[in-house]
Design a protein around this nucleic acid. Structure first.
Lengths: 125, 125
DNA sequence: CCGTATCCATAGAGATACTG
DNA sequence: CAGTATCTCTATGGATACGG
């Protein structure tokens, strides 16, 4: 009855999809990747992540915290200071994040540039 | 000026996000994962992927084809026969897919079960 | 067998303004 | 500094039903 070396997972409980869900939502990949560096304050993260609105950054961070991947440390100071860091579970994603980065640099980015070249007619501003 | 061993990527051109975009859309992870097995016909894929409607499966496959990750081979027969397989680029995602699967089995699935236990009050049907 | 076409509901995300 | 609060728009995906 051997028909596959890979286990067949249906939707409920597919480990691939379950893991991908952690990254679903704009910017989660980037956030996690930048936190590999170490602890970052909200605005440091915001600067690194670039094109994410404050609202979105907050939202994604809360979700990541909910997953137990990110730790949020609030300091009772004025002005306010909040630091974000990876939990152990979050850090265990490092191999995945680095693999995503490597693949992207090798395959995805070159294509993006092609596409940008195609549609370079617009938005030269 | 060393401040990070990791390069700082803004949104445009972040390789992590660029790679993640390939997986965005319901079922893409699962589809790619199952195609690691080898060539599959539409309905074989449908069975493995389980809770994906025909419409969605078609849509995701078209997008993956568009990314150049999946090859679609149509046979001019009656009844129709269409086979899907990974391109070389698609196959190069294998390390990522396996890493996602391994992480999921170790971390994500145990949590899912917790959550399901919590909300087990509803939908026992 | 392998899809399209259509309609509809919801979740995701942008812009912007305000606050402890 | 580090967030909420709205309000709006679009993209995503489910449920059919039909077609080559």
């Amino acid at each position: 009855m051997k028909q596959s070396r890979y286990k067949t997972y249906a939707r409920e409980g597919c480990p691939v999809e379950a893991t991908l869900e952690l990254f679903s939502g704009k910017g989660k990949g980037m956030i996690l990747y930048h936190l590999l560096e170490g602890t970052l304050r909200f605005n440091e993260l915001k600067r690194r992540v670039g094109a994410l609105t404050q609202r979105m950054l907050t939202k994604q961070l809360r979700e990541l915290e909910g997953y137990g991947l990110v730790h949020r440390e609030v300091y009772a100071e004025v002005p306010p200071k909040v630091e974000y860091s990876l939990t152990d579970t979050g850090r265990s994603l490092e191999p995945i994040l680095l693999a995503l980065k490597d693949w992207g640099e090798e395959h995805a980015l070159p294509r993006l540039r092609e596409k940008q070249a195609e549609s370079a007619i617009c938005e030269t501003e």
